[in-house]
């Protein structure tokens, strides 16, 4: 079976500077794969390449074996994307936002299905009919996560998904990700959060200056060692 996502010697140039340099990795079906790195390491660039927003200068990106450059619509159909600080429409409430974006994806969901998704991200029922401009950052993030859930795509790309969430919500989110992976969905998330990544990811790649400089993998029955990843992260960042 083809990997859900695959980058092969991927090089991306942005503004005349290499943003990714020969990055290769794959995300298997049902796997949670985290990319860790500091600011400007190339984490978000990697996600945008899988969505077809950035064309490789060298190498390739594939979604379920299909080249993204040749068929970006296929990639976008199979992927639910959660951008960092997902800004939905502030003048719409949660139901209206989800209805709009689901429609954009060619999907429909009844009020019951939307409520079930919002329950899973623990968005208070009373808040759901309020305009998003009155929401906190974390509440908006929950609506965006609910959107990713409702799309029911086999692949999720998450850019700093726990940004703005409180610790309880982060724990709930991490549990949710494991549930999704258990159900066969593949997740590629990029984050600064070493602890969170180690809690949830099956594999971690460490990015620095556009290059993949470290890899960590969970073993059966044991999560990835947070201290080892933290040490590598700090060492690389301060090198």
């Amino acid at each position: 079976m083809a990997p859900a996502l695959e980058a092969d010697a991927l090089t991306i140039v942005r503004g005349g500077q290499p943003a990714l340099r020969g990055v290769s990795f794959a995300v298997r079906p049902g796997e949670v794969h985290a990319l860790l790195g500091g600011n400007g390491a190339g984490k978000s660039t990697t996600l945008l390449a899988f969505l077809g927003f950035l064309a490789p200068a060298q190498g390739s990106v594939r979604v379920e074996g299909a080249d993204v450059g040749a068929d970006p619509a296929h990639a976008r159909r199979r992927i639910a994307y959660l951008p960092e600080n997902a800004a939905l429409y502030g003048h719409l409430d949660a139901y209206e936002n989800l209805g709009y974006f689901l429609g954009l994806a060619g999907l429909r969901a009844g009020r019951g299905a939307i409520d079930a998704a919002l329950d899973r991200v623990a968005l208070a029922a009373a808040a759901r009919t309020r305009r998003l401009e009155a929401y906190s950052k974390g509440m908006r993030q929950k609506v965006a996560i609910a959107l990713a859930l409702l799309r029911e795509t086999p692949i999720l790309l998450l850019d700093e998904p726990t940004s703005g969430l409180d610790p309880v919500a982060i724990d709930e989110f991490n549990r949710l990700l494991r549930e999704l992976a258990g159900a066969g969905r593949s997740v590629l998330m990029v984050t600064h959060d070493v602890y969170g990544a180690c809690q949830v990811a099956d594999r971690i790649g460490l990015l620095r200056d556009g290059a993949l400089v470290g890899r960590f993998e969970a073993t059966p029955g044991a999560r990835i060692d947070t201290e080892a990843v933290h040490a590598a992260f700090v060492a690389r960042e301060t090198a």
Binding site: L51, F53, A73, Y81, P83, A87, L88, L104, A105
Partner: peptide, 18 residues
């Protein structure tokens, strides 16, 4: 500018059509 562009295009599959 509002931060929705990539989510919209990724969800709609084609920005041009949108």
């Amino acid at each position: 500018a509002a931060g929705r562009h990539d989510l919209l295009v990724a969800t709609a599959r084609s920005g041009t059509r949108l």
